[in-house]
Simulated scan of single mutants.
Amino acid sequence: MEENKTYWFDVGPVSAIPLRGARTVKTPRREIAVFRTASNDVFALENRCPHKGGPLSEGIVHGHKVACPLHNLIIDLETGMAAGDAGCARKFPVKIERGHVYLDMGVAASA
């Protein structure tokens, strides 16, 4: 079994992601939403609500949560878990260095 390797991709400056908003990154396998909270914390989830497939990047960010724009289901940005046991959005490792957001594309490219 092959081990996942870490490949950090520069998504851009933190300031390019709106406060309490998101920016999307398209990969060959999926679209990833990179969120920035009011307190400048950054999280990345697959841009798909686990309940009805809504685009999470278009949802309202409040605290460390996002509300799906289709039906207001609340998703935890830290874990990807949906409220009420409605599933889980896949989360991806991110880091911030020198004011830029980096996404682990090794994880993003895996199944």
Results as ranks from 00 to 15, higher is better:
17 I>H: 07
31 E>D: 14
32 I>H: 14
86 A>L: 11
97 E>A: 15
75 I>E: 02
39 S>N: 12
103 L>Y: 02
84 G>N: 05
29 R>I: 08
49 C>I: 01
78 E>L: 10
91 K>Y: 08
14 V>G: 03
1 M>H: 13
87 G>D: 08
7 Y>N: 00
44 A>M: 00
19 L>G: 04
25 V>H: 05
62 H>A: 14
20 R>Y: 00
83 A>W: 06
89 A>W: 09
1 M>F: 11
28 P>W: 03
29 R>E: 14
99 G>S: 10
74 I>T: 11
30 R>F: 08
56 L>D: 03
22 A>C: 04
97 E>C: 14
91 K>E: 10
73 L>C: 06
69 P>L: 07
100 H>L: 13
6 T>V: 15
16 A>C: 07
9 F>Q: 02
48 R>Q: 12
3 E>N: 10
102 Y>D: 01
66 V>C: 03
43 F>C: 03
86 A>D: 05
37 T>F: 09
39 S>D: 14
70 L>N: 09
23 R>V: 14
52 K>T: 00
74 I>V: 13
22 A>N: 04
99 G>Y: 10
38 A>T: 09
73 L>R: 09
1 M>C: 11
57 S>W: 15
47 N>T: 05
15 S>I: 01
44 A>P: 00
68 C>L: 09
48 R>V: 06
106 G>R: 09
6 T>D: 13
16 A>F: 07
111 A>N: 08
32 I>Y: 12
13 P>F: 00
43 F>V: 02
